[in-house]
Computed example of a mutant assay.
Amino acid sequence: MDLSAVQTALADKSYSALAPLCDDILLQAASRGATTDEWPYAVHLLAHLYLNDLNSARFFWKSLPQEVKDARPELAAVWRIGQCLWNRDYAGVYTAAQGFEWGTDLADFITSFLESYRKRIFQLLTSAYSTIIVADVAHFMGMSEEDATNYAVQNGWSLDAATNMLTVKKPKAQTNQKLDASKLQRLTECVFHLEH
């Protein structure tokens, strides 16, 4: 089985391309009856988690034979991350990811996954809260309170040290709509005709 495209995507850090690539190669191998002993199961599962495609990740996990799951500790470690994502155990995602000694194929991928996940969680916090306790931000972001505070302040939030609360800076709504005078004139004429 030729895994050079997967290795190239990993080397190029093209992580968002890995899930569809792995899906295609695995389907082609299955259609030819090729053995999948060398298949990078952990990379494939993590690729779905990286895209936040939990349904595909769960389906992939359930489709694997039990002996594959039992024989590959790295695969089981990736699945623990997936379970935390599925159960919305935000702090558990970081614990699961940082609590395993990843091989060279996955170490950079895990780091990139955590950065992407942290940004996604920060965006969720930004949209959900106007103020939030530092301890909660630290919990959701998998950081110490000091690091979480620094991260939030660097992204425009402000800290009230007396209450240990962060005030969220909401992104400005973008309004790119321009008023076209000719359209306004036509609308005015149309309304005038309707009224008279």
Results as ranks from 00 to 15, higher is better:
Met1Gln: 01
Leu3Tyr: 11
Ala5Met: 10
Val6Ile: 15
Ala9Phe: 09
Ala11Met: 10
Ala11Phe: 09
Ser14Arg: 15
Ser16Pro: 00
Ser16Ala: 15
Ala17Phe: 06
Ala17Asp: 09
Leu21Lys: 06
Cys22Phe: 07
Cys22Pro: 04
Cys22Lys: 03
Asp23Leu: 07
Asp23Tyr: 07
Asp24Leu: 12
Asp24Tyr: 07
Ile25Arg: 08
Ile25Gly: 05
Ile25Ser: 08
Leu26Phe: 09
Leu26Ile: 05
Leu27Pro: 00
Ser31Lys: 11
Arg32Ile: 02
Ala34Met: 10
Asp37Leu: 15
Asp37Met: 11
Glu38Thr: 13
Tyr41Glu: 05
Val43Asn: 02
Val43Asp: 01
Val43His: 02
Leu46Val: 03
Leu46Thr: 00
Leu49Cys: 06
Tyr50Pro: 03
Leu51Lys: 06
Leu54Lys: 04
Asn55Ser: 10
Arg58Ser: 04
Arg58Val: 00
Phe59Leu: 07
Trp61Glu: 04
Ser63Val: 02
Leu64Asp: 04
Pro65Asp: 14
Pro65Asn: 11
Val68Tyr: 06
Val68Lys: 12
Lys69Leu: 10
Leu75Cys: 05
Ala77Asp: 07
Val78Cys: 08
Trp79Ile: 00
Cys84Gly: 03
Cys84Ala: 14
Leu85Gln: 11
Leu85Cys: 13
Trp86Asp: 01
Trp86Gln: 01
Asn87Tyr: 09
Val93Lys: 01
Val93Arg: 01
Val93Ala: 10
Tyr94Cys: 01
Tyr94Ile: 01
Thr95His: 07
Gly99His: 11
Gly99Thr: 09
Phe100Arg: 03
Phe100Cys: 06
Gly103Lys: 04
Gly103Asn: 14
Thr104Gly: 03
Leu106Pro: 03
Ala107Gln: 15
Asp108Gln: 06
Phe109Arg: 00
Phe109Met: 07
Phe113Lys: 02
Phe113Val: 04
Glu115Lys: 10
Glu115Leu: 13
Glu115Asp: 15
Arg118Leu: 05
Arg120Ala: 13
Ile121Asp: 03
Ile121Trp: 05
Phe122Ile: 00
Ala128Gly: 13
Ser130Met: 09
Ile132Glu: 04
Ile132Pro: 04
Ala135Pro: 00
Asp136Phe: 12
Asp136Thr: 09
Ala138Asp: 03
Met141Phe: 09
Gly142Pro: 03
Glu145Ala: 14
Glu146Thr: 15
Asp147Glu: 15
Ala148Phe: 08
Thr149Val: 04
Thr149Ser: 08
Asn150Lys: 14
Tyr151Ser: 03
Ala152Ile: 02
Asp160Glu: 14
Ala162Val: 12
Asn164Gly: 03
Asn164Tyr: 07
Met165Ser: 07
Leu166Asp: 11
Val168Ile: 15
Lys170Cys: 03
Pro171Asn: 07
Pro171His: 08
Pro171Tyr: 08
Gln174Phe: 12
Gln174His: 14
Thr175Leu: 13
Thr175Gln: 13
Asn176Lys: 11
Leu179Ser: 12
Asp180Gln: 12
Asp180Pro: 05
Ser182Trp: 05
Lys183Thr: 05
Lys183Cys: 08
Leu184Ala: 12
Leu184Ser: 10
Arg186Asp: 13
Leu187Ser: 12
Leu187Met: 13
Thr188Leu: 13
Thr188Gln: 15
Glu189Tyr: 12
Glu189Ser: 14
Cys190Gly: 12
Val191Trp: 10
Val191Glu: 08
His193Thr: 02
His193Lys: 04
Leu194Gly: 01
His196Met: 10
His196Leu: 08
